[in-house]
Design a protein around this nucleic acid. Structure first.
Length: 632
RNA sequence: GGGGGCGUAGCUCAAUUGGUUAGAGUACCGGACUGUCGAUCCGGUGGUUGCGGGUUCGAGUCCCGUCGCCCUCGCCA
């Protein structure tokens, strides 16, 4: 077998005259009878091969002494088809038919003297060609080995590989983080996401769980004196996937000892700066900070996309003065400070500059159904148009209710001629969420979202800080940790926290944690917190979350014990690696940045996992299936 | 679990209001061709219209069910 001397991406006119070996796949063939061109592809590029019996004889005769050898070679070359795997030996020369400017190797070609057909192909279901229409994703996933041959997919794999190197260099290489592997077979801790369970053969009736994250291991590592920990780890959550979510995904997991919030954010900001610099040459400016409260008030979401200037305003006080029935009934129960658990109503408004022309009736009707999906009654609309005398005039929708207060309204929302103003009125939680979702849809409809890579700050990074410690579960009415139960209260909240009563909703809702997220263009790319390192504080959290001391011990005794043997103050964060790569690659499909992703029901279409277990396997594991096949 | 979209040749798509033998490009097979690079030209193979049922004189098209993929709500401490 011919062993390659070069790759298909590197030969230039400086190599002319050299005898080289190349290996790869047939990307295209152009058969002119006695003259055959092959574009040979490998990971590195394309190189044109030419099969010409006369040239091959001239060049090859000296080497082989066998003029008849090439008849067989031409016969084989004639049969080459796309995706055959071959190796060749030949001489580099300047192309006789002129340069192909589309290829880096376009000046040269290889006059083939010897052809090894390493592996013929069956007719492939599709060609891994970036120039033609992609086959549907189902076919691509089923034949992933073909899909990954595609140059664009190779590029993604390369980007991902480089990203992991940059990550390790920065943390483990330059900042003395210790890379430690943590178990995949872990203990079930049924809070949070649904877990994957693994039966334990040696202890009948018991199960491991796959970790949702190595959260407690990394904290224990801090208590073990590891000081700075990093891991590029796999996490598992048995929840329905989305375009940007997979049941198994990768995190860049980090933890530091003897730090407070500012040391962590500084270290991570340094990482983000390095990462974007090395991955795409972008200089990340100082990352702006925003409180959770401001994010929810101004953007209606805890991960605001600040690339476009659309802000939400609470106009409840103004709205109470109108005669519009929806506003009045929502506000009837009075107002108070924004609270997610409050039944009291608010009216939120969003001014859309230039919306009067672009947001047609059809579009704004769609906004009502959008808002309804989030529990709101609908979206009220008013347009600000130009009256005959040139002054602003309110038009359509709820114009007649606002007209008596026109001047105040225009001042209140800062409206200008040509604007549309959208309103959502409901309880604080519903109105906030609905208008936050609406804001994103409006930005898309108005074409306000710049394409990544475009000039003018395509990357908008943002720290979101000061999350609430707790939120109430809508179904059970129980308090749950907003981040996770190991998140510390912010330093200045400690007294408030240790004295809090589980029944004191107002206080519990108001306690602010030492958590932080990094948001990029409206997507959460990292989240973390200062952790609790005080056993009493940890016990208090468990108590507030409704865990009895016995339950807390059963689930987290190892943590509570570790905390009682001199636990250092520590804090950490985790980046979603897949999301980072998605941003760098400019895709909104997580499957595009994972070599072997799963479908929406967690299936691997290539290997056909998951699959049935045999009775013998189940017996070994002391497990029985209750599933009954439906009659067909 | 809910809502929506899609499923026709290996692949990408078309097929009028429910109406003749389901077409095209590409891939594949055969032939021609010595400078192509989306090669070209000639000819050909290829279909249980995802699957099952129903309505109808007649179903790719309409209805019901089911399977698969995608988007989304719930969910994702």
């Amino acid at each position: 077998m011919l062993i390659r001397t070069h790759t298909c991406g590197e030969l230039r006119d400086t190599h002319v005259g050299q005898t080289v070996n190349l290996s790869g796949w047939v990307n295209a063939y152009r058969d002119h009878g006695n003259l055959i061109f092959i574009d040979l592809r490998d990971r590195y590029g394309l190189t044109q091969l030419v099969f010409d019996p006369e040239d091959a004889n001239e060049a090859g005769a000296a080497n082989t002494g066998d003029k008849h050898a090439h008849t067989g070679m031409m016969g084989d070359a004639d049969k080459l088809r796309n995706e055959d795997c071959i190796a060749v030996r030949g001489v580099v020369r300047i192309r006789r038919g002129g340069e192909n400017p589309k290829l880096p190797t376009g000046k040269v070609e290889i006059v083939v003297q010897q052809l090894d057909v390493l592996s013929k192909t069956d007719n492939p279901p599709f060609l891994p060609d970036d120039n033609s229409t992609l086959p549907n994703e189902e076919i691509r996933l089923k034949h992933r080995y073909l899909d990954l041959r595609r140059p664009s997919m190779q590029k993604v794999l390369g980007t991902r590989s480089k990203a992991m190197q940059v990550i390790r260099n920065y943390f483990a290489g330059e900042n003395r983080f210790l890379e430690v592997e943590t178990p995949i077979l872990y203990k079930s801790t049924p809070e949070g996401a649904r877990e994957f369970l693994v039966p334990c053969r040696n202890m009948p009736g018991t199960f491991y769980a796959l970790p949702q994250s190595p959260q407690l291991f990394k904290q224990i590592l801090m208590m073990s004196g590891c000081d700075r920990y990093m891991q590029i780890c796999r996490c598992f959550r048995d929840e329905d996937p989305r375009a940007d979510r997979q049941p198994e995904f990768s995190q860049v997991d980090l933890e530091m000892s003897f730090v407070r919030r500012d040391q962590i954010t500084e270290m991570m900001e340094g990482f983000v700066r390095r990462f974007w610099k090395e991955m795409c040459g972008y200089e990340v400016p100082t990352i702006q900070r925003m409180s959770y409260r401001d994010a929810m008030e101004d953007y209606g979401i805890d991960r605001p996309d600040t690339r476009y200037d659309l802000k939400i305003k609470d106009i409840s006080t103004f709205a109470a003065r109108t005669e519009f029935g929806v506003f009045k009934s929502v506000l009837e129960k009075g107002q108070d400070r924004p609270r997610f658990n409050s039944k009291r109503g608010v009216v939120k408004a969003m001014r859309v500059p230039g919306g009067a022309d672009k947001l047609t009736r059809k579009i704004t009707d769609g906004y009502s159904s959008l808002a309804q999906r989030f529990g709101a009654g609908g979206v009220a609309v008013v347009k600000v148009i130009k009256a005959e005398d040139g002054s602003p005039k309110l038009d359509t929708g709820i114009a007649k209710f606002l007209e008596p207060l026109k001047a105040d309204f225009i001042r209140e929302v800062g409206a200008q001629i040509g604007d549309t103003v959208l309103f959502v009125a409901d309880t604080y939680a519903i109105a906030t969420k609905a208008i936050g979702e609406l804001r994103q849809q409006v930005a898309r409809d108005m074409g306000m979202i710049p394409k990544p890579g475009a000039e003018g700050g395509p990357w908008n990074f943002l720290w979101v800080l000061d999350f609430p410690m707790f939120e109430k579960n809508k179904e059970t009415g129980k308090w749950i940790a907003m981040h996770h139960p190991f998140t510390a209260p912010r330093d200045d909240q400690r007294d408030l926290f240790v004295n809090a009563d589980v029944n004191d909703d107002d206080t519990l809702e108001s306690i602010v944690s030492a958590g932080y997220d990094i948001v990029l263009n409206g997507s959460e790319i990292a989240g973390g917190s200062v952790r609790i390192h005080d056993r009493a504080v940890q016990a208090k959290v468990f108590q507030l979350l409704g865990l009895s001391p016995e339950q807390a011990k059963e689930k987290f005794s190892f943590l509570l014990e570790a905390l009682s043997y001199g636990a250092p103050p520590h804090a950490g964060i985790a980046f979603g690696l897949d999301r980072l790569i998605m941003h760098i690659c400019g895709t909104d499909n997580i499957r595009d940045v994972i070599a072997f992703p799963k479908t929406q029901i967690g299936a691997d279409l290539m290997t056909r996992a998951p699959s049935k277990a045999t009775d013998a396997q189940l017996k070994d594991l002391h497990v029985a299936s209750t599933w009954v096949e439906k009659p067909s």
